[in-house]
Every structure is written in C-alpha cells, then in structure tokens.
Design a protein around this nucleic acid. Structure first.
Length: 479
RNA sequence: GCCCUCGUCGUCUAACGGUCAGGACACCACUCUUUCAAGGUGGCAACGGGGGUUCGACUCCCCCCGAGGGCGCCA
C-alpha cells in the first residue's frame, strides 16, 4: 500500500472513483453516479477506479460484490483500478486497508484532534454544543476503561468556524462547524467509519474529483475537516441530484425495479439503459437523444448536469429500449430472442429453434423489452389455450362453426402453404360469405394464437404450417 | 426541531435579459391496416407564488410556498 496523495507531477491525471458498499444490488441511482464518474474520467482521459466500501461487516456480503461488478460490466463500464483488476493503490477493499486507517487515527489521537467517546451507542447528543466526552482526563478515561465500556473514536470538530467549499455544480456551500458536531470516525474494534475511511482512501488513491449523490452533501464539511486535520489537499466535489420515482418520492421498491440487475433480468438492453440513464439528469444541450457510449464520452460536460432530482420514467425507458431493439443487427436480435425463449422454456427441439429466423421479423416491431417475448410468441412453440373471455367474445357466434368449416376446406387445398396463397384464398372466402373480414379473421386469430392481438395472421399461419393451423381451427370449433 | 439543496408542459429537458417558451416520452385525434404494433401527420400541455432590479425578465436579487437530503458506533 503506497501513499499516492501527492502524485508525481508527470501523473497529474484526473482520477475518479466509484465506491459502492456491497450491502445490496446496484441501485439504479448509484449506477447513474458510476456512469457520470466514468464518463468524466473517459472524457478527460483520466483514471476510473472501483473501490469496495465494505467496512460494515454486518451488512456487507461478498456475493453483492460480485453482482455489483457484473451489473457495472453489463452496463458497459470498465475500470482501470479495482478489486478484480488490481492497481497501484490497492487493495481496493476497505476491509483490507485497516493498517492505513489505524495509522491515521493514531495520528489524530496523538495530535489531540480526536478522542474516545463513551456514550451509549446511539445516545450521543446532537450537534450544537460541545460533546460531553471531549475533555476527559487520562485518569477519567482509565476509569471508564476499567468499567469495560467500549468507546468510539470521535473527531474533535473545531467550534465557531464557517466551513465553505465549492461544489462544482452548486457553487459555494457553507456550513457552521457547530452544526457539524463531533462525528465518529472509528469503532472500538478498529473498523473505520465512512466519513473517515473515504477521506483516507480518496487521498491515498489520489482521487481528484468526487462525484456522488446529493445525500452526501452534508457529509462534505466533515470530510473537509478531516482533510485539513491531516494536511491533505481535498479533491473537487460535485453532488448529483437523486433519482426519484414517477410520483416524485425517492426511488424505492414500491416503484418497481430499482436495481440494474432487475432491468437486466427483464430484458432491457444495456446500451439503452446506459443512454437513458445518461440523459436523466444531464443533457447534451441539443435535441438529440440517442447516443452510443463513445458519443456520450465525447459529448459529456459537467456544466450540463442538472441540479434538481429527475423522475425515473419507465415509459420513456421502454420506448427507448424499443428503439434500440429495432436497431439491432438481425443476427444479434435473433440470438437474443433465442436466449429469452430458451429461458422461458419454449425451445424444446432443434426444429423449434429453427423457427427463430422466421418469427424474429414479426416481433422486432412488437416488443419494447425482451421480457415480453415469451408471452407474445408462445403459440409458435406450444398448443394454445384460449382464455374463456376470448372464447366467449370471438368463438361463440353462430356463424363460427360454418365459416370455420369452410376455412378448413379452403386451407386444406392450399399448396404450398404460404402467405401469398393463404391470404387471397381466405379473402375470397370472406367476401363470398358476406361476412366482414374482422368477423372471420379475429376468431381465426384467437383459434390459432390464443390471443386477440398477434403478428399478422397469415404470416403466423405460414410459419406454423398447414397441419397445426388446421388442427387448431378444428379444435376451436364449438360443438 | 436544526442545517443544506432544489423548483420550465403529467414526465425527461432546451432557453444562458428581448423566442409565437423549442424537442422528446406519455396522452388524444387522423393516417396506414386482418388484430396488435411499428411508421407518418396533427393536437393538448409548462416558466410554483409574491415582491424587487431593468426599457425589457423563465433567466439576476429577496421573501414565501412546495419538494428532497442530512443531523448513526450505516454508507
């Protein structure tokens, strides 16, 4: 572990980091924070670092590290230094950096800038007046120690000071040191607390820019105090607005999927989610809204970041994802289709798999996410079960048995069984029968697909083949 | 309660003292059409409120209101 705080002059590159804590899946808001950090690093030719903030052993779990890394990779982000790729400032797990924290805390203790606090957990008084544990004499401390009380180490915030910092997005922000209070920096067992470990690590890793959620805005004065206490130069700070749900409240489970993992599972394209997220809180300044990752890197500017929280609009994401799907190269779309159908248990045989190239064009314009496909295309791979409501609405009219019988006769004669021959034949039949096209085609659609909305009927018939089509029509005739 | 941040159509946003306040999603029509989509055309729709500054304010200042964040031995 080396100290990179003062980088050699030749290495004055911009260095940014994303520092998730592995206590859950990667939240969509954190993903956007990561994305902006990454975009800025790439835009400026800087370094992007991934650091795992797993100091809270109670809440952290290794499996979350893995899914977070996966989510990030899936989105299309990469990092120059991090837990899996290593780097000159490692280790990149905070849980493996204890000696560095220890060393720093001892420094503060020795210089009288920190002290032991023996308050009951959660019982420390709110900021406003001097903390009662501040001025214990060594004798008192010894006495408290013999009582077996576990102390926490607190930073001794100087009183009566105005702490000002420049937020890259919001301008100057002022806090009074009284309001900040003496915050805890390390537990008795030596595990560092957030405000302390970020400062130690951001400095040790030579971080030049800290872009993080606005929920950290009021942590910044604490961290600044620490930078000053250590004599370190603080990085530049920029606090991003949070992402809200459609109703304007903070994005939560209640709003549906909140993790990147969930969007992946629901069949969203990473490039679409990336594009959408980039535009949620940032604007290129033009009216253009489709960008590749490379184009985003090129266009990204801090000045065009928004100040207010944005609401996550699933409808717009869906629309954008649909657009991306329609732009997919044919091969890619087919193999994506294949994958979801397989997952949905619909592909049982090579014969069924060979259908993919034929049904692909039918669904390209009909899905916005791959999650929809299984439900819409199931009739190509398994027998249909007609819902009672559709049965009643389309198949219970008295003319159905008669016309279906005629349809069977007509279709039976068609050879080859292709759309170009099916369509004119059936249209002729309908016209001869005196019925409206809808009165025949909709019931047929229901009989063949089990749905009242499907890709074009005659294409479906051709792909299914004469045998299946005739059988389905026959079994749908009510007796 | 204390502190901090934010405020343009329902939503994402453009505007950087002078525009009929523009675009996109959604929504509604129309079109295409065997259904559903996709596509095309058109429409509805916003500067939170009140004071200033200015010849002129969405743009600058103040107050109010509203929303969000923080005040952990979480991050």
């Amino acid at each position: 572990m080396q100290d990179r705080g003062s980088l050699p002059a030749g290495e004055r590159k911009v260095r940014l980091r994303f520092a998730p804590s592995p206590t859950g899946l990667l939240h969509i808001g954190n993903a956007r924070t990561a994305l902006y950090n990454w975009l800025f690093a790439r835009h400026t030719g800087g370094i992007f670092i991934l650091r795992i903030e797993d100091t809270d052993v109670q809440r952290s779990a290794p499996e979350f590290v893995e899914t977070i890394l996966n989510s990030l990779h899936w989105l299309g982000l990469d990092w120059d230094e991090g837990p899996d790729v290593g780097g000159p400032c490692g280790p990149y797990f905070q849980s493996q950096r204890k000696p560095l924290y220890q060393e720093h805390v001892e420094r503060l203790l020795k210089e009288g800038k920190a002290y032991f606090c023996y308050c009951e957990p959660g019982q420390a008084p709110k900021p406003g007046k001097p903390h009662p544990c501040r001025d214990y004499t060594p004798k008192e401390i010894k006495a408290l120690k013999t009582q077996g009380l576990k102390p926490v180490i607190r930073f001794k915030t100087p009183m009566g000071e105005q702490i000002r910092f420049h937020d890259r997005l919001r301008g100057d922000v002022d806090f009074l040191s009284e309001e900040v209070g003496d915050f805890s920096i390390m537990k008795e067992d030596g595990s560092p607390l957030y405000n302390f470990s970020v400062v130690v690590d951001d400095h040790a890793m030579g971080i030049t820019h800290v872009f993080r959620g606005e929920d950290h805005l009021s942590n910044t004065p604490k961290q600044l105090l620490l930078y000053r206490a250590f004599g370190y130069e603080p990085p530049e700070f920029l606090h991003l607005p949070l992402i809200h749900g459609e109703d304007g409240t903070p994005l939560s489970k209640r709003h549906g999927a909140t993790s990147v993992e969930a969007y992946r599972a629901r069949g969203y394209l990473p490039s679409a989610l990336f594009n959408f997220l980039a535009l949620l809180g940032w604007s290129p300044g033009s009216e253009r809204e489709f960008f590749s990752r490379e184009e985003l890197i090129q266009a990204f500017q801090l000045e065009r970041l928004h100040h207010s929280p944005a609401r996550f609009s699933l409808k717009k994401l869906n629309w954008m994802n649909g657009k991306y799907i329609r732009q997919m190269p044919r091969q890619e779309f087919e193999s994506a289709l294949c994958k979801v159908l397989q997952k949905g248990g619909l592909l049982q045989s090579p014969a069924q798999e060979s259908l993919i190239p034929r049904i692909a064009p039918l669904f390209l314009e009909r899905i916005e996410t791959f999650g929809e496909i299984a439900e819409k295309a199931d009739f190509f791979f398994q027998e249909v079960k007609i819902p009672p409501t559709l049965q009643k609405k389309y198949l219970s009219n008295p003319h159905i048995p008669v016309i279906f019988q005629q349809v069977l006769e007509v279709l039976n004669l068609i050879e080859p069984f292709i759309r170009e021959k099916i369509e004119p034949a059936l249209r002729q039949l309908v016209s001869d029968s005196g019925l409206k096209t809808q009165e025949v085609f909709q019931p047929l659609r229901v009989a063949i697909t089990g749905k009242d909305a499907s890709p074009p009927l005659f294409d479906c018939m051709e792909i299914l083949g004469k045998e299946k089509v005739l059988r389905r029509i026959r079994t749908a005739i009510p007796y």
